[in-house]
Design a protein around this nucleic acid. Structure first.
Length: 635
DNA sequence: TGGGGTCCT
DNA sequence: AGGACCC
């Protein structure tokens, strides 16, 4: 065991009670090695032997381990990297498409092993999996008297699916390191936590091997009982390896492995304690403002303050931390949260796997962007990318097109696609270049400003090409947003422009379900209706008049606002297929399906009063259908 | 110093 | 709408 010279005040307290470490879960954290570089290598395996760097603008965003051996590192300037390693292979990586695709594929692969779907991605290259249920299932199955010959079941239904392993030991490295002379005392195996961590480590190793054999990617893994600890402990052996944090996890005097492990970390290295919090914490224990590299916005600190220095500082605890860190604008409970982190406690759950992101954004940075004409051009480039991303990430997975084998020129679009989610909002952000100081220098700032607008419905059209939609989006939405953001006619100078689709509403979340909360449902329904803004051409006026369908909900008793004609009768799916190249006629433009009460195998249940538009997959109440149909007819 | 993301206020 | 955090 590690030397232990901490004070007795080690177990975190809150209002006199012990704050318990989470010991009931087994969690694995995956971190793909040098991810962008690995994606490039997977495409071009000959590069594996070369020093490889991925470039975005002027910097090396990541590089493979061969390059690191030669002195390159992340976020290094390209010029410097070339000086250090003249024969480095540099690949441009500003377009993230392939990295995003690889990330999605690996995530889906790991997800397929999960039983509880608690599988959370962070960035493109990290995944947590809560494997508690798998581990506990296997603990119940194993024979305590013959741990060396255990079979790990990966399926609840197929007992042959799995692998053999020795449950008496850990797979891979441990923290602290276990020497062979002090091999596990038999009684250790009676510690249920220890046994569960053993199983977790073997599962982690199996998944790592599968990731290599099936996907060709190596990763670094940590195994522990909460998100914080498994993420941190993985870093102990990098790359392409794994580390398990061994018990004991608790003690009266701080002589547990959690405390000794986390205590050695520089405070800013703790996930959740960013630059701002770390500086406040450093300033407190140093009794003076913490110094930092002013040349950088989020520069490295010049101080080394360890978790232990803070944790054992006089009067330290959640209340003191709340005083130091709290204040207007800060999340409440920050003191308790940070106190937890400093003690290795993290009760946040591994998030449920999601199939749509909550936001899609696309950005580019510029050396100089000043004229409105240039801005408009860039907005068009960004809009195309955003629309492509929306199609890639928000449409369900069927094939885009099927080329008719008889006639290559005749491309029949089989439009099985549905929107899985609708972003309600579009946001334009810029990063203005900071104005010059009197002395001629420039303050460095990465602050952005933004304006938002409702996402116009036409972007969801599956008939119109991305090019025409992008042009319309720029003209009708983004340029107006830009004028709102920068009312001055000129003088601005932008270093970055970002366009984002936000406020994602899951199409499935509008479906009904037994026992749903009615108030919540109505609120959500309102949200969705708000986004069903349609263009009403009822008047002679050529200018399109925006009509918010949600208004019609309130005005539903007003005869004038009711739809003049009833919706066409519902059409069965087989009759209602409309190719996306088809031009809908007024009589067939609509094909709304009512809830399918007679097909119980259909999981795609809607609310009793909700209808789905076959054209775009949108879900809406019956009174919204007429206006919706006219919108389609126009688009 | 990039091009993304999440959640909170 | 912005700010903090994460990669």
């Amino acid at each position: 065991m590690l030397p232990c010279n901490t004070t007795p005040m080690d177990i975190p307290r809150r209002r006199g009670q012990r704050l318990k470490r989470q010991l009931d879960s087994i969690i694995i954290h995956f971190d793909y090695d040098a991810f962008y570089a690995s994606v490039i290598e997977a495409e071009t395996p000959s590069l594996r032997a070369r020093p490889l760097a991925v470039q975005q603008k002027q910097i090396v965003v990541t590089c493979n381990y061969e390059a690191r051996r030669r002195g390159l590192y992340k976020l290094q300037l390209i010029t410097e990297a070339k000086k250090t390693c003249p024969d480095v292979v540099i690949v441009l990586g500003e377009d993230l498409t392939r990295f995003r695709n690889a990330s999605k594929e690996l995530y889906a692969f790991l997800r397929s092993f999960s039983w509880n779907s608690r599988c959370e991605r962070l960035g493109f290259d990290e995944v947590w999996m809560d494997v508690t249920d798998i581990v506990d299932y296997n603990v119940r199955l194993l024979n305590q008297n013959d741990l060396a010959n255990t079979f790990f079941c990966l399926s609840k239904t197929d007992p042959t699916e799995g692998f053999a392993f020795d449950a008496s030991g850990v797979a891979g490295h441990t923290y602290p390191e276990v020497t062979s002379t002090e091999a596990d005392a038999p009684r250790d195996l009676w510690d249920p936590l220890r046994l569960r961590l053993h199983l977790g480590s073997h599962l982690a190793q199996h998944l790592r091997q599968k990731l290599v054999s099936k996907k060709g990617y190596t990763c670094t893994v940590g195994v522990s009982t909460n998100k914080l600890l498994c993420k941190l402990v993985g870093n102990v052996h990098k790359p392409s390896d794994q580390t398990t944090l061994l018990p004991p996890y608790t003690s009266e005097d701080g002589c547990d492995n959690v405390t000794s492990f986390i205590d050695e970390h520089e405070v800013g290295k703790i996930p959740g304690i960013g630059f701002k919090l770390a500086q406040k914490l450093r300033a407190h224990v140093l009794q003076q403002p913490a110094d930092f590299d002013s040349g950088l916005v989020y520069g490295g600190t010049n101080e080394k303050v360890l978790v232990r220095d803070i944790r054992t500082f006089s009067d330290m605890g959640p209340e003191t931390l709340e005083r130091i860190l709290g204040g207007p604008g800060t999340p409440h409970g920050i003191g308790a949260k940070v106190w937890g982190l400093l003690n290795g406690c993290d009760d946040t759950e591994v998030g449920q796997a999601r199939d749509v992101p909550t936001q899609i954004s696309i950005e580019d940075s510029y050396v100089r962007l000043v004229a409105l004409e240039e801005v408009t051009k860039e907005l068009l480039v960004l809009s195309r990318s955003l629309l492509r991303r929306m199609h890639a990430d928000l449409l369900d997975d069927d094939e885009d097109l099927q080329v008719s084998p008889n006639d290559g020129a005749n491309i029949a679009a089989i439009s099985e696609k549905r929107w899985l989610a609708f972003p309600k909002t579009i946001r334009l952000s810029t990063r203005p270049r900071p104005p010059q100081n009197p002395d001629g220098s420039r303050n460095r700032s990465f602050a952005r400003i933004s304006r938002s607008a409702p996402m116009p419905n036409f972007v969801f059209s599956l008939k119109d090409g991305i090019e025409v939609l992008a042009e319309r989006l720029v003209k009708e939405t983004l340029v107006p947003l830009f004028r709102k953001l920068h009312p001055e006619k000129s003088g601005w100078n932008l270093s970055l422009v970002n366009v984002a689709a936000t406020g994602m509403v899951d199409a499935a979340s509008e479906k009904g379900g037994v026992g749903r909360d009615i108030g919540k449902m109505l609120k959500r329904q309102g949200d969705v209706l708000k986004q069903w803004k349609v263009y009403d051409t009822g008047g002679q006026d050529q200018t399109k008049e925006e009509v918010d369908v949600s208004m019609q909900v309130q005005d539903v008793w007003d005869e004038k606002n009711l739809e003049p004609s009833p919706p066409p009768p519902p059409i069965r799916p087989s009759e209602s297929r409309i190719g996306s190249e088809d031009i809908p006629t007024p009589s067939q433009e609509l094909s709304f399906l009512p809830e399918d009460r007679w097909e119980s195998e259909d999981e795609d249940m809607l609310d009793d009063d909700s209808y789905r538009c076959e054209e775009c997959g949108g879900v809406m109440p019956i009174f919204a259908m007429g206006a919706h149909a006219r919108w389609h007819a126009q688009n």
